[in-house]
Write a protein that binds this DNA or RNA. Structure first.
Length: 335
DNA sequence: GGCCAGGTTCGCT
DNA sequence: AGCGAACATGGC
């Protein structure tokens, strides 16, 4: 199993695939600049080599995709140029071929947010005393997107209320226990668990992974709903922000915090702001005071954070992402 | 050992 | 409507 304790490599880049053996498919793609692959991919993995189903190692982002039931491992590397970015994608998997290239390109592009235009946000942020240092430090960070609404919902529920350390343990345990394995180059990668795979589990099974009975019930309800077809989460992509939030909150276990996070990290919406997030409340407080890191527990209320965030509208998803990017570096002792 | 963590639901006034 | 409790676990 891959080591998930070491931190991801920073600037080391390689131009050859990270995995041995001939790929079934290989092609290149050009993100909208500025694009920093190291910042964007390591944001997905929380600055670790592995987080759940995502791997970022030595400049390569690796992920198992589900191509209509067939598993494929994709490996995405970067030319290292923020202003003229070029990504090379290799894909492995039996049954994978050139015909899959368009779908793989679309999915990889979505996961890494390569088409996002950061310019409008940067214009606003550079004129903002609180955000200006962050957009300079993290220039080229795009907002990663979840592979599916289902995956994002399950991951969010596991992170509700608990510390980031606990969330990481729960998320990794779930992927290891229910994600389909993909062997390659002597390592085991895992897809995110399919709804049907989780639907067959019991509350006791998930409690054994250290989920509370409540979290287990929420996850199983959603997995069974999606697996049976009664719950069509992916159809929400076409709806306006307010309707997405409303529909998500009807699901047991989903409240405003979860819905707002999904707008940012799953639906690629520009102006999401999870004002109920305790950590975000601390970071906004710190930024307002001109500090790089939150003080000892000082935090404004959710309503105060929401009011303060209005100056960043309509780009609050980006503001939120950059605040958390900075916060994670601070907690890692890098700033 | 106690308290809090990147919330939400449920049962009370 | 608004408020407090319960939820499971890891880290300080």
């Amino acid at each position: 199993m891959l080591d998930d304790k070491s931190t991801a490599g920073g600037s080391a880049q390689r131009t050859s695939p990270a995995s041995p053996g001939p790929p079934a498919v290989s092609f290149q793609m050009t993100p909208r600049p500025p694009y920093d692959h190291a910042l964007t991919a390591s944001h997905i993995t929380f600055n670790r080599e592995r987080y759940g189903a995502d791997v970022y190692r030595e400049g390569h982002f690796l992920r198992v995709l589900d191509l209509n039931g067939r598993l494929a491992l994709v490996d995405v590397a970067w030319n290292g140029d923020v202003d003229a970015p070029l990504l090379t994608v290799w894909a492995y998997g039996s049954g994978t071929g050139e015909a899959d290239a368009p779908e793989i390109e679309r999915t990889v592009g979505w996961l890494l947010g390569v088409e996002q235009d950061l310019a409008p946000f940067y214009r606003l942020a550079l004129a903002d005393d609180g955000l200006a240092p962050l957009v300079r430090r993290f220039r080229g960070l795009h907002v990663p997107q979840a592979a599916s609404v289902f995956e994002a919902l399950v991951m969010a529920i596991l992170a509700q209320q608990v510390s980031s350390a606990v969330a990481r343990i729960l998320r990794s345990a779930l992927v290891d226990a229910y994600g389909a394995p993909f062997e390659h180059g002597g390592a085991t990668y895992r897809a995110f668990p399919a709804p049907a795979a989780l639907a067959g589990a019991s509350v006791e099974d998930l409690r054994a992974l250290k989920l509370s009975a409540r979290k287990a019930e929420y996850v199983l309800d959603i997995a069974r709903g999606v697996a049976s077809g009664a719950l069509d989460l992916e159809a929400l992509h076409d709806r306006p922000d307010a309707e997405i939030e409303e529909e998500l909150c009807r699901i047991r276990g989903v409240g405003p915090w979860t819905a707002h996070w999904l707008l940012i990290r799953t639906f690629d919406r520009a102006d999401g702001f999870p004002s109920g997030d305790l950590a975000l409340q601390r970071h906004v407080t710190a930024v307002m005071q001109g500090k790089a890191a939150p003080g000892d527990g000082v935090r404004m209320t959710g309503d105060e954070a929401l009011e303060a965030s209005r100056r960043w509208s309509p780009h609050r998803s980006y503001a939120t992402t950059y605040l958390f990017a900075a916060a994670r570096r601070v907690s890692a002792g890098e700033l």
